[in-house]
């Protein structure tokens, strides 16, 4: 292709910068409000990043396009919410960890092992099956209403930066806790991958399945571990999400946003998942708040809602010009 590979990155950068600055530059938006929107976008972005992270982990280790990551988030959130009605939250989380590990075992045994070496599309469809089963099973066991997860964090928002902006900026305490939890989780994962033998084995498998197998790394166990880790990531995502908005079915649908995130960041890149998540979180929030009103006016639309497709259309553009994403490596097909 004659389009340089960095072009979409540059264009995205310019667009983001312009989109970020434009509302401020026109002077119509109060700086404090602008910062609030930015922070709101970043918080959503953290959640997208967490779902995308679980997704990337599984794709790296097993080449499976795990459509079920969103369903796992819902399942984990439901489990924590309902268990927490009978025990302290920390105990509920621990019990859910056990459940997610069990789930990893079952998935490996029933789905992955028989389908090993199948084409990616078949595995993708299998995870679609897992998605449906988990959604049905989770709601059959835990119930299908809206549940609360109370983490004991005070609800009333904090006022920060009151001296910088007129009127200050409102920040939710649970948002801050969520961001901290996400950072801690990513840190823990980094330590796990760098410093432990299992982590090194995982990285070896991600690099080259056959080579890893030939030096005696058991693939089956690696898959169980990586699905368990993805399950734990799902718990963190589910708890944060559920704590903020309540646990309900729509979590599973919103988590589909992780797919454009990984396209943007690159399928096999952990930093890509995080950065991509934040870009999309901020991008769609900014687009909804600042871009939708003029669009509605110009085209006489029946409401905004462009955040429903913003991420996907962005991903579509990336697929056309830079399919490997921001951080991915270009692949060469050998014949």
């Amino acid at each position: 292709m004659s389009i340089p590979r960095y072009a979409p990155v540059a264009i995205l950068g310019v667009l983001l910068a312009a989109g970020l600055v434009a509302p401020l530059a026109t002077g119509e938006t109060a700086p404090g409000f602008w910062v609030e929107v930015l922070i709101g976008g970043l918080m959503t972005g953290v959640l997208y990043s967490l779902v995308a992270l679980g997704f990337v982990l599984i794709f790296k280790a097993s080449g499976v396009f795990n459509f079920a990551q969103g369903a796992m988030v819902l399942f984990a959130a439901l489990a924590v919410a309902r268990l927490a009605e009978r025990m302290p939250v920390w105990a509920a989380v621990l019990a859910t960890v056990a459940i997610m590990v069990m789930l990893a075992f079952i998935v490996e045994r029933i789905v992955l092992r028989p389908l090993v070496n199948q084409e990616g599309v078949v595995l993708l469809m299998a995870t679609l099956g897992i998605t449906f089963f988990l959604n049905g099973f989770g709601q059959a066991v835990w119930g299908s209403d809206i549940y609360e997860i109370n983490l004991g964090i005070p609800r009333e928002p904090m006022m920060v930066l009151g001296k910088v902006f007129e009127g200050g900026v409102l920040v939710n305490r649970d948002d801050i806790a969520a961001a901290l939890a996400a950072v801690l989780l990513v840190g823990a994962l980094a330590v796990f991958f760098r410093r432990t033998a299992t982590g090194r084995a995982l990285r070896a498998v991600a690099d080259d399945h056959q080579a890893a197998q030939s030096i005696g790394i058991p693939l089956n166990r690696i898959w169980v571990i990586v699905w368990s880790v993805a399950g734990i990531v799902a718990i963190v995502g589910g708890v944060i999400w559920g704590g903020k908005l309540g646990v309900q079915f729509s979590i599973s649908q919103v988590a589909l946003k992780a797919l454009p995130v990984v396209i943007l960041g690159g399928f096999e890149s952990v930093p890509g998942a995080i950065v991509g998540g934040l870009i999309i979180g901020v991008g769609e929030k900014m687009a909804e708040v600042f871009l939708a009103p003029p669009l509605i006016k110009a085209f006489d639309l029946a409401g905004g809602g462009i955040e429903n497709w913003f991420a996907y259309v962005l991903a579509l553009l990336f697929l056309l010009v830079r399919p490997e994403g921001l951080f991915g490596e270009r692949r060469i097909d050998r014949v």
Binding site: G120, L256, L301, A302, G303, G304, I306, Y312, V313, L319
Partner: peptide, 27 residues
């Protein structure tokens, strides 16, 4: 034309959500 199987899933999801929006919002 540029991407293989898996990635296409996301492109077709884009078709789904964009279409949902068009018919809900464009009067």
């Amino acid at each position: 034309l540029r991407i293989k199987g898996l990635y296409l899933a996301v492109a077709t999801l884009a078709a789904q959500f964009f279409t949902d929006w068009i018919f809900a919002r464009v009067k």
